[in-house]
Each structure stands twice: as C-alpha cells, then as structure tokens.
Computed example of a mutant assay.
Amino acid sequence: MKARRSVGVAKRAGNAPAEHEAHAAVDRAKRALGERGPVWWDDGGPDLNRHMARTTIYADWFEALGTDAGVK
C-alpha cells in the first residue's frame, strides 16, 4: 500500500519521475505477491481471467446475483 499511496502523492504533486517510480514499485510488489507475472498454479480449469462473468460458465450464478452485485 505504501507504493500505491506514493502514486497518488506523486500525481498530486505533478512529479512525473516520482509517479513512474511509484508505479514501478507497485508492479514489483504485485509480482512478489504473485498477482502479476506467469501463472504459478495449474488446477486444470479454464483460464477465465479477463472475461466477464456473464459470458463464462458462471453466467447462471452471476445472473442469480441480480443488480445487488453492483453491475447493471
């Protein structure tokens, strides 16, 4: 979160070099946490990242959520 806060601070200050470094720090942290980079698991299931739930095998489940799910 420190890196994320640094992005905001740099943006508000109009400091492009600091903003660039803060974004790089966020990327490094996300990679260290396994949130970015190559997939480190394989459960045999289809990769549904970057797909809308309503267009996947979870369409019925998503529809049952209704508009309370925050998506209209």
Rank of each mutant, 00 (worst) to 15 (best):
R36L: 15
A64V: 05
L65R: 14
P46N: 12
T56G: 01
V39S: 12
E63K: 15
D43G: 15
D27L: 06
V71S: 10
G14Y: 00
E21V: 02
A29G: 04
D60V: 11
H20V: 04
K30W: 11
V26M: 05
E63L: 07
V9P: 00
W61I: 07
H23S: 01
A18Q: 01
E63A: 15
A64S: 14
A22N: 00
P38D: 13
R28M: 10
A24W: 08
I57D: 05
R4M: 03
A10Q: 02
G37S: 11
F62Q: 09
A22K: 00
R31G: 05
W61H: 10
A18L: 02
M1K: 08
P46T: 08
V39E: 14
V71K: 11
G34T: 05
M1N: 08
P38V: 14
M52D: 13
K72G: 07
K11T: 08
D43K: 04
N49L: 11
M1E: 11
A16Y: 05
S6P: 00
A13C: 06
A64R: 04
F62R: 12
A59I: 09
H51F: 15
D47P: 04
G37E: 06
A59V: 10
S6E: 01
L65W: 09
L33Q: 12
A32W: 06
G8M: 13
D47E: 12
A25H: 01
R5M: 07
P17F: 04
K2S: 11
H23G: 01
D60F: 06
G44V: 15
H20M: 07
D60P: 05
W61N: 02
L33C: 06
L33P: 07
M52V: 10
L48Q: 06
A3R: 00
S6Q: 05
A16M: 06
T56C: 02
D60T: 14
S6A: 15
R5G: 00
T67G: 03
N49Q: 10
L48R: 14
